[in-house]
Amino acid sequence: MLELDHIAIAGATLEEAVAHVEAALGCALGPVGHHAHMGTHNRLLGLGRDVYLEAIAIDPAAPAPAWPRWFRLDEFSGPPRLTNWILRTDDLDAALAAAPAGAGVATALARGDFRWRMGIPADGRLPFDDAHPALIEWRGGLKPQDRLAETGCRLVRLEVAHPEAEALDAALPFRDPRVVLVSGTRALRASFSTPHGQRSLE
């Protein structure tokens, strides 16, 4: 079973990514977290009990890994934007076996009290031009959603556009009324309800 876990907004710097999110949604993100394995850092925003938003960028203070970073951050340029969506599963090996080629190799990761496994592509590129979701399996019964502060923000709709939307849809044993796959130029767009009204992010 696949469920929506989080969405990722990348930036050339974490400060830019965070500013982009906070300006759009009017909600403050949490403290900085670090991913030693990938040389990246992030800040999170809770979107209720099941989903969160991640602002992420290369950590300039961390050593560069000997492999491509996730979400193609090594190639990122331009303004901050919504780049990826992530689905969680309780059986990552089975989910990766059923996914299109290139969805990644199960990799064990940790940060503080959190333990997880994630499908990480060897070349950093997910199928369907990164429109295919990354796959994650949280271990030990703890995930970020369990600790993030209530913000009053909720994801209302996530639109995933790709020229091969029908093929992408067929490749995903996943249904969530908030997530819509549409045919078009590759893009991700999200809309939210917030304490300040309806807001959106691309």
Score class of each variant (00 low, 15 high):
residue 26 G to E: 05
residue 27 C to I: 15
residue 28 A to W: 03
residue 30 G to Q: 09
residue 31 P to L: 06
residue 31 P to R: 12
residue 31 P to M: 06
residue 32 V to E: 11
residue 33 G to V: 13
residue 33 G to S: 08
residue 36 A to V: 15
residue 38 M to Y: 03
residue 38 M to G: 04
residue 40 T to Y: 00
residue 40 T to F: 00
residue 40 T to Q: 00
residue 40 T to R: 00
residue 41 H to D: 14
residue 41 H to N: 12
residue 42 N to G: 09
residue 45 L to M: 08
residue 46 G to Y: 06
residue 47 L to P: 13
residue 48 G to F: 03
residue 49 R to P: 12
residue 50 D to Y: 08
residue 51 V to N: 08
residue 51 V to F: 02
residue 52 Y to L: 11
residue 52 Y to C: 13
residue 52 Y to E: 11
residue 54 E to T: 08
residue 54 E to H: 07
residue 55 A to P: 01
residue 55 A to T: 08
residue 55 A to F: 05
residue 56 I to C: 02
residue 56 I to E: 01
residue 58 I to S: 01
residue 58 I to L: 03
residue 61 A to G: 08
residue 63 P to S: 13
residue 65 P to H: 10
residue 66 A to D: 13
residue 69 R to L: 01
residue 72 R to Y: 00
residue 73 L to E: 00
residue 74 D to L: 00
residue 74 D to N: 02
residue 76 F to N: 08
residue 76 F to G: 10
residue 76 F to A: 14
residue 77 S to K: 09
residue 77 S to C: 12
residue 80 P to G: 09
residue 81 R to W: 06
residue 82 L to H: 07
residue 82 L to F: 03
residue 86 I to C: 12
residue 87 L to V: 11
residue 88 R to N: 13
residue 88 R to C: 13
residue 88 R to M: 05
residue 89 T to W: 02
residue 89 T to R: 01
residue 89 T to C: 09
residue 89 T to P: 01
residue 90 D to I: 14
residue 90 D to T: 15
residue 91 D to R: 12
residue 91 D to F: 11
residue 92 L to W: 04
residue 97 A to R: 14
residue 97 A to M: 09
residue 98 A to R: 14
residue 100 P to C: 10
residue 100 P to S: 12
residue 102 G to Y: 00
residue 102 G to I: 01
residue 103 A to W: 01
residue 103 A to M: 10
